[in-house]
């Protein structure tokens, strides 16, 4: 029976894409304590920019760079010009990101129109890999690997470098970190940009099998929240665990209990909220 191993591998592959979408949200919350409702909009923006670059140049790697660059710039500007003015004021910040969600939805609609779009799967990555009992579309394998590498880089960067230590210090105690000579506001802006870029990369990597359309921002935002709430906002290992859990629960749930297909994505989140509201790796 090839069903179960295939589901397991696909669950992990889908989970790794979810990690790209969730990790930025988590990172931004960890450093700046901002719940960014415009996070799905970076997926939308990254996907549209990427699709346009692929159509113009035919190069997928250029599209990934373009998507990352655009969303990075968008995140940095958003934080620098607007959110920074509201530092520490939670409700106005959330409302402002809500405003950006609507604004970016309208801007993308204005530029790219309302027609749904989907990128052709890059030629080198078409078809499926069959290993023993497992069938995995080649492209999903590629996304899984790319997200895995990015996750590793993120972890190494935050855990093993001097910059990472500064970020962690800024998360734990911004005042003391500032007093020690760490430029906390600059770090915050940088991390906001990186978080946005991760979702932008998720957008371009996701567009050959999820596509992009008006409303995708909200779909992605919901997924990102499911992942982050399970893992615990602000925790990178938590986001990884949450992503894999949601990916696997979605895959197995839809086969084992098809009657509950609607909630397989969100059931783990509801469960965690009930028993451990801080999330698996969250700190109080």
């Amino acid at each position: 029976m090839t069903l179960w191993p295939t589901l397991a591998v696909n669950g992990i592959a889908f989970g790794m894409l979810l990690f790209l979408l969730g990790s930025g949200l988590s990172l931004i919350f960890g450093v700046l304590r901002i719940v960014n409702l415009a996070h799905g909009s970076y997926y939308l923006l990254g996907a549209y920019v990427g699709v346009t670059i692929v159509r113009a140049t035919g190069s997928f790697s250029l599209a990934v760079l373009g998507a990352a660059g655009t969303t990075l710039a968008c995140g940095v500007l958003m934080q620098r010009l607007f959110l920074r003015r509201l530092a520490g004021r939670v409700l106005p910040q959330v409302l402002l990101t809500m405003g950006f969600l609507l604004l970016l939805a309208d801007i993308t609609l204005w530029i790219w129109g309302g027609d749904p779009q989907i990128l052709p799967t890059p030629a080198a990555l078409q078809g499926a890999v069959v290993v023993g009992p497992v069938v995995l579309p080649t492209y999903r394998g590629f996304v899984m690997a790319t997200s895995g590498v990015l996750a590793l880089l993120l972890w190494l960067g935050l855990d093993r470098t001097r910059l990472g230590a500064q970020v962690r210090a800024a998360v734990d105690d911004p005042e003391t970190a500032q007093a020690m000579g760490i430029d906390v506001p600059l770090l915050g802006t940088a991390m906001f940009g990186v978080g946005a870029a991760l979702a932008g990369i998720g957008g371009i990597l996701g567009s050959p099998f999820l596509g992009v359309y008006p409303g995708a921002d909200l779909d992605v935002l919901t997924l990102a929240f499911a992942v982050v709430i399970i893992g615990g906002l602000g925790s990178l290992p938590g986001t990884l665990a949450g992503s894999l859990l949601v990916g696997l629960a979605d895959n197995f749930g839809k086969v084992l209990v098809p009657e509950l297909s609607y909630i397989t994505l969100f059931a783990p989140m509801a469960l965690i909220l009930a028993v451990r509201p801080r999330g698996l790796f969250g700190r109080s």
Binding site: T2, L7, P116, Q117, L210, G211, G253, V255
Partner: peptide
């Protein structure tokens, strides 16, 4: 639905055809 794979892998191998009615922009994916 974002990922149809969990459904698609349940299609028996020996059917003559798959009759699908997934419409709107989601049909693309």
């Amino acid at each position: 639905t974002a990922d149809f794979t969990p459904f698609l892998v349940q299609i028996p191998r020996d059917v003559d055809a798959v009759v699908a009615a997934v419409v709107g922009p989601i049909a693309l994916r």
